[in-house]
Nucleic acid binder design. Structure first.
Lengths: 243, 243
DNA sequence: GCAAAAGTGTTTCGTTTACACCCATGC
DNA sequence: GCATGGGTGTAAACGAAACACTTTTGC
């Protein structure tokens, strides 16, 4: 419930523009959405339908409205431009280089989020949205290449200290899947036994008792995420998921 | 060296205001400066000389100019409003609640920085700037109380994983000083022997061979910060200063 | 000589790491 | 029956934590 702004700080010109006493930047939010397909980390991009950078790929994002916070803006733009519903997003930086946008002074607040790699589609037939493997991302619009590098670095850092990885998997998942995810993001290899021991010792995994269907070999056990334990765990001091 | 903006995105009205096609927020930067006096953590505040919140204390900060990044803005406002020169600042959040500023839609990017608690003065005789112990901070202007809580939480988190603490001390310092600092920030107690062992094992402390002058009892050894080792250390994976 | 804070080493404990074999399934 | 990946236990190494006495200095 947004209340109205206490006082107007603008005047409306004859042709309906908004006039301010001092110059102001435009403000946008951009959403870096990571998805995992079981093998590699992917990022969600949309193809720009208008200039500037028409035809180039970029993050879902757009201009702030006056009745929303910057986080709400990121959510709204994401769901407008792709078929995504709500995802939890983490703010990771403001990008304010003077010439980062050819349209003028545009400053963006970047968010990142993790989801399973579900099918996406653009908002309408004209718009395209698609996943790209992180090692096959094309040159992006604006300074989005740089934003992506910083988002990925931040994701890796966060993964060491918080169990964010689960957000990238479907509701039920196997420990080998989880391990592949950690290995893909951090670009390292873990010993299977130690990985399983550590994950199970956290208590945030709940055994469903089920086995994965259609497994090519021995069917691995399906686990589910234990939300209550996760919250306790998150707030625990002196505990991290570093490997 | 800022280049000019590629294209103007505004029109100037007859009376010299700036008109834009869509509404825009105003953008500010605020600097939460922490200082340590040997006993307690302090924060630097300036007293507001104008409305809104005239007479209330707030962080140094102010409006973005069109030829600077948001980080440069934070630096500039800090040195304009206090006697501070350059300090390294870390961005920690954007605050964009719709009604956080009675003047209209104002969005701020908040930075924090650590310095020794040196004497400060306001920019001119009218302006006041002063340190406040963290447990004696008055009610602040705008949503700065909230920003302070978040800055302090972020400082504690960072302290666990990066040797930021040194930035709060003078050029040479003693290990007991450093320990008091950690204990003040984290609100815990450490065993002296273990603390010293761990700090010395990092290699980022350099023994000056000197002893503190005017010590009331046995004079403790003065150390200096080893900058090269610090940089190596910062970039090392899988190492943290957690206690 | 006593109060106050600095300096120093060792043992215990828990966590992390390294490592090898058996099991279930599909072909 | 064999290839593929899942599941399990134990020993060694390392880092963290607990712990007490001696030294220096000012009063």
């Amino acid at each position: 419930m947004n209340q109205s702004i206490a006082k107007t700080d603008y005047r409306i010109t004859e042709d309906g523009w908004y006039a301010y006493e001092y110059q102001r930047p435009a403000l946008t939010a951009d959403a870096v959405i990571f998805g995992f397909d079981g093998q590699a980390l992917n990022v969600l991009l949309v193809k720009r339908g208008i200039e500037p950078f028409k035809g180039k790929w970029a993050f879902p994002g757009g201009f702030l409205r006056m009745n929303e916070t910057i986080a709400q803006c990121a959510q709204r733009e994401l769901s407008e431009e792709t078929s995504f519903k709500e995802v939890y997003m983490e703010q990771f930086g403001v990008f304010s280089d003077v010439n980062r946008d050819p349209r003028g002074r545009v400053i963006t607040t970047a968010f990142y989020a993790l989801t399973p790699k579900i099918e996406v589609r653009g908002a309408d037939d004209a718009a395209e949205a698609d996943w790209f493997r992180l090692d096959r991302v094309p040159a992006l619009a604006f300074d989005h290449d740089r934003i992506l590098r910083i988002a990925y670095r931040r994701l890796r850092e966060d993964l060491h200290f918080r169990p964010v990885g689960f957000e990238l998997l479907p509701e039920t998942f196997t420990i080998p899947q989880l391990q592949r995810l950690y290995e893909a993001i951090l670009d390292v290899h873990f010993d299977r036994r130690n990985f399983m021991k550590k994950m199970l010792s956290t208590g945030i995994l709940k055994d469903t008792g089920l086995k994965e269907a259609n497994a090519p070999h021995r069917a691995p056990t399906l686990y589910r995420f234990n939300l209550e334990a996760y919250h306790q765990f998150k707030n625990r001091r002196n505990f991290n998921l570093e490997f």
